[in-house]
Design a protein around this nucleic acid. Structure first.
Length: 417
DNA sequence: AAGCTAGACAACCGCGTTCCG
DNA sequence: TCGGAACGCGGTTGTCTAGCT
């Protein structure tokens, strides 16, 4: 890798920052503002790489950062969003991949797109927290905590269920996939807590006799643990990928990103179990949803745990339920208009800094990776913040998933590789 | 008291994307 | 259109500290 010019100097200092260095950064930023970080070391009189200066400012010196510990509410939000981004969005990705109407995305494209945004999306929902904060907190605390609860932090399913999944997968998986990573968490769990896992909701093991390819694939490729994932989804530039894949233009990428971000908001509205529709409904405290922040977390759960939520909340049962476990009459497939997904322009010429989707009045800034107006977008894709629609959305995705895996062999032989 | 270990978190690294001349 | 520079991200490593033996 070629180092940036500001980092070329041999005498660039590394390691922990001193108060004196911090003061120089603060003085510089207060005078000149942020930006052009490569020039900062020279102008501020620092022997640091500009990249390090930016990182120091972003992760530590910014005045709006919180220094105190994560609150239980923040913890809850992180887990919920991680669950949403890590599992539900995967299902959404499968919807895109599996869509017969919009064969725009290969599996790797979809995975890469949303995996790229996970920590930053979560951090955006936590004022005063950086993605680095959230990531560290997840890796050091929450991940272990979930494991100790007998919950796989990758799939947010009970380990018993994950193990059963793999047992049923049998010889289907010829790739190394994610099993090694999952085992790491399971091993931690079992070593720390050899006694039986706490009782799981009945739903946790329901429907297991009905393992199908979709479940196999879902488990295999859930995001969250990366090194193994790389085996399955080789790191590659999306554009390069698209060049060989021949199916992912810029607009489609943006639309996929948009969908992913919308879905994170969607998850904020509704992360519920159809099994306990009242017990597990929770509205998150995102600014856009503040008008409807009535938490309907189970009072039963609160009585038991003394917290405003239950760990059982973080099991993502419904996303993996067999299709026929969803309530009847909720099998409506979201109406993804072809114009929303299908490539509009295969020339790849859309290089403007902002893409304005006139149909949706949404501005996608392709530099900052910030997407706005998501909440209002939910309805436009048929993703509605109502429990009934939520279930139908998942059901629809699963339906598409099943369709896709009827062509499972084709997916495994992804032409992108 | 010394050595070891695990946890917390700061910082670095490599890579992908975008900007801009 | 191209290539270098800049930026931003997630993953990983390094450092410090508290607790334990």
């Amino acid at each position: 890798m070629v180092r940036p010019p500001c980092c070329d100097k041999l005498n660039v200092k590394k390691g922990l920052w001193t108060e004196e260095e911090d003061a120089k950064i603060l003085a510089y930023v207060s005078k000149h503002g942020t930006g052009n970080w490569t020039a900062v070391p020279k102008k501020a009189g620092l022997r640091r790489c500009g990249k390090s200066c930016r990182l120091r400012w972003t992760n530590y010196l910014r005045p709006d950062l919180k220094r105190e510990s994560f609150t239980p509410q923040e913890e809850e939000l992180i887990i919920r969003l991680h669950a949403a981004l890590g599992s539900r969005l995967y299902v959404l990705g499968l919807f895109l991949v599996g869509s017969q109407t919009h064969p725009t995305f290969c599996l790797s494209c979809t995975m890469k797109i949303y995996h790229t945004f996970m920590w930053s999306i979560i951090a955006q929902q936590l004022p005063g927290r950086t993605d680095n904060d959230v990531k560290n907190y997840w890796n050091t605390k929450l991940r272990k905590k979930l494991s100790e609860m007998g919950i796989d932090p990758v799939t947010h399913k009970p380990f018993s269920q994950v193990l059963a999944d793999y047992g049923n997968i049998g010889g289907l998986l010829k790739s190394r996939t994610r099993i090694g990573s999952l085992n790491r968490d399971m091993k931690n769990s079992f070593m720390i807590k050899p006694e039986p896992h706490p009782p799981q909701p009945a739903i946790a093991t329901e429907g297991f006799s009905n393992i199908n390819n979709s479940r196999v694939m879902t488990t295999m490729a859930s995001p969250g643990i990366e090194p193994i994932q790389e085996n399955f989804f080789p790191s590659s530039n999306i554009n390069q990928h698209a060049a060989t894949c021949g199916s992912l233009d810029l607009l489609s990428q943006l639309q996929a990103i948009k969908l992913v971000t919308e879905a994170s908001n969607y998850a904020g509205y509704q992360i519920i179990s159809p099994q306990f529709p009242n017990q597990y409904t929770l509205s998150l405290s995102s600014p856009s949803s503040s008008s409807s922040t009535s938490s309907t977390c189970s009072t039963t759960a609160q009585e038991k745990t003394g917290l405003a939520f239950s760990w059982r909340d973080f099991l993502l049962e419904d996303a993996f339920l067999p299709y026929d476990h969803h309530p009847q009459g909720q099998d409506h497939i979201p109406e993804f208009e072809s114009k929303d997904i299908a490539p509009q322009n295969h020339s790849g010429n859309e290089t403007s800094a902002e893409h304005i989707d006139d149909d949706k009045n949404i501005i996608i800034n392709n530099n900052s990776r910030v997407l706005s107006g998501m909440d209002s977008e939910l309805l436009s894709y048929g993703i509605q913040a109502s429990s009934s629609t939520e279930s139908s959305f998942v059901a629809a995705m699963l339906d598409q998933e099943n369709e896709m895996f009827s062509e499972f062999a084709n997916l495994l032989e992804d032409p992108c590789y």
